[in-house]
Design a protein around this nucleic acid. Structure first.
Lengths: 159, 159
DNA sequence: GTATGTGCAAATCATTTGCATTCTC
DNA sequence: GAGAATGCAAATGATTTGCACATAC
């Protein structure tokens, strides 16, 4: 099978509503409360699939429905736990996250020059995860694969 | 081809000397100075292949040839640049490194319970790196693959 | 001798936390 | 209302940096 480039357009309004509802269900199932802040944070993430960090999220929220950074930092583990979010990489000392809910698992190429992130899907990685786990007696829960280097654009600009 | 478990015994004294020399050559080639501190740090790392963080390195050095943490933090980028070291993962907010010089490239399994790291080698990962890079017009410089889950021991202890 | 490297202590900066106040259930 | 969640400001903790002194070249 050949790989797909995960190109995830922004969510349609209805999709967002479906996923927001799933998030509320998650919160309730854990005894957490559904607050205005958590909904604002989740909605902001669901509307924007790109890779982001806490500052970007904070700024995005500022105009419509401001939420303190403390609350963002407190909400992120919940969103990860709920499967809405994943921490994908560290850059300049701060973590970057991405929307994961309802998206296909994928891996990343990161350009060392322009710092852009490109996504791809390589099915054999899951095979490797399974094979190695079996071999090592491991009960695997996930994997991460990342390639770094120079993107096409930055290669061109170097000349 | 089947994978090898990278089990890297501590270095023999002679190997260490060869690699120390290579490090010195690297330093000089860059116009950096060969200092007692840098040698002590490099030697400590070369003698100990395990995954470690700055505190462990600091403690290892303390008895024989104490080096300040500032110097350790300043030396690490040099050691990475020289190919002696690689930053492998973040745990509890501090980076973990491993000796890389002269070792085969390998990937990691990390146990979420006991936090132990297991190493393995899966050659198809390099194929994936090449194939995807070609497809995306990327000039790749490396990759990282990590599996997380529950190691055999921790699965057993859970019962 | 000169510039680089070191140690120390102070500064950064992302993230976490204590606490009084505000909300959800 | 009771207990959770929020915002703010202060605390934390890893890493970085300024500076005076030491040392490699």
């Amino acid at each position: 099978m050949s790989e797909d480039i995960a190109n995830s357009p922004n969510q349609s309004e209805e999709n967002v509503q479906v996923e927001m509802e799933a998030f509320r269900v998650f919160l309730k199932s854990r005894g957490y409360r559904v607050t205005r802040e958590r909904e604002a944070i989740a909605e902001s993430i669901l509307l924007n699939h790109d890779h982001f960090d806490v500052d970007e999220l904070f700024l995005n929220l500022r105009s419509k429905s401001p939420v303190s950074k403390a609350s963002i930092y407190r909400a992120i583990p919940l969103m990860i736990e709920s499967g809405l979010l994943a921490a994908v990489y560290l850059e300049n000392g701060h973590m970057h996250y991405e929307r994961v809910y309802g998206r296909e698992h994928h891996s990343h190429l990161r350009c060392l020059t322009c710092h852009k992130i490109f996504e791809f899907n390589a099915p054999e990685l899951t095979q490797v995860e399974k094979r190695i786990s079996r071999m090592m007696g491991f009960k695997s829960e996930g994997h991460k694969f990342e390639i770094w280097g120079l993107c096409a654009n930055c290669q061109a600009e170097k000349k």
